[in-house]
Simulated scan of single mutants.
Amino acid sequence: MFTGIIEDLGVVTNLETEKDNLHITIKSNITGELKIDQSVSHNGVCLTVVDINAEEYTVTAINETLQKSNIGDLQIESIVNLERAMKLGDRLDGHIVQGHVDQTATCISVESENGSWVFTFEYDTSLSNITIEKGSITVNGVSLTVVNSKPNQFSVAIIPYTYEHTSFKDMKVSDIVNLEFDVVGKYVKRLFEMNN
């Protein structure tokens, strides 16, 4: 379980394919606090630490993860939003995030708004995921509030702190991002579908 509050920006230092799996090595300031078998969110994708070597650690993404997220698009020197799993008893500063990406979206607009930024994303509606105005959404692991919710797109407003401390500072139009829709909304949607 995560909160969507990014702890660090990691840098991809190595990518190694083994059958359908991708081993991703990342250099991070939090590596020294990690342990083997620990869950860490990478751009919103929960991956397990399988190796640690000095300032670098390695995680493995299986084929399903590569198909449903932007993890397969990572390259050497890619910047990755990182968050360790929350501790029981900590404040929930973002919202409940599972680290299970529902689908990807495309950034279709980046607008500077006198000290903040508005990013707009478009996603495929065939998976029946929805956003609601002022609801929660996770974009590349970052807990955000939805503005301008539409059937196949939404926007988020990014404050300077979030812009500087996440991969939003490098994001541009046409970039693919990971989305995790609000878990409460997913359960409500499922219950509604079962009763109709």
Rank of each mutant, 00 (worst) to 15 (best):
T3E: 09
I5K: 01
I6E: 05
D8S: 13
D8P: 10
V11T: 15
T13P: 04
L15K: 10
L15C: 06
E16R: 10
E16K: 15
T17M: 11
E18A: 13
E18C: 14
E18P: 07
I24E: 05
K27R: 13
G32L: 03
G32Y: 02
E33N: 15
K35R: 15
I36D: 12
S39G: 08
S41W: 00
S41V: 01
V45Q: 05
T48W: 00
V49D: 01
V49Q: 01
D51Q: 13
D51N: 15
D51T: 09
N53I: 03
A54G: 07
A54I: 04
E55Y: 09
E55W: 02
E55S: 11
E56C: 14
V59K: 03
A61P: 02
E64Y: 07
S69R: 00
N70F: 03
I71G: 00
G72M: 02
D73N: 13
S78L: 09
I79L: 13
N81F: 10
L82N: 05
R84H: 08
A85S: 15
A85Q: 08
L92E: 07
H95T: 04
G99N: 01
V101D: 00
Q103S: 10
A105N: 04
A105W: 08
A105Y: 09
S109N: 14
E111G: 04
E113D: 09
E113W: 07
G115F: 09
W117L: 06
F119S: 02
T120K: 13
D124Q: 05
I130R: 14
T131F: 03
I132V: 15
K134D: 11
S136R: 02
S136N: 11
I137Q: 06
V139W: 01
V142H: 06
L144S: 03
T145R: 04
T145F: 01
N148R: 13
S149T: 00
P151Q: 10
I158H: 01
I159V: 12
I159P: 00
P160A: 12
Y163Q: 11
Y163A: 08
T166A: 05
F168N: 01
D170N: 14
V173F: 01
S174H: 14
S174C: 08
I176S: 12
I176T: 15
N178K: 06
L179F: 12
E180I: 09
F181Q: 03
K186P: 02
K189P: 02
K189S: 14
R190K: 15
L191C: 08
E193F: 04
M194I: 13
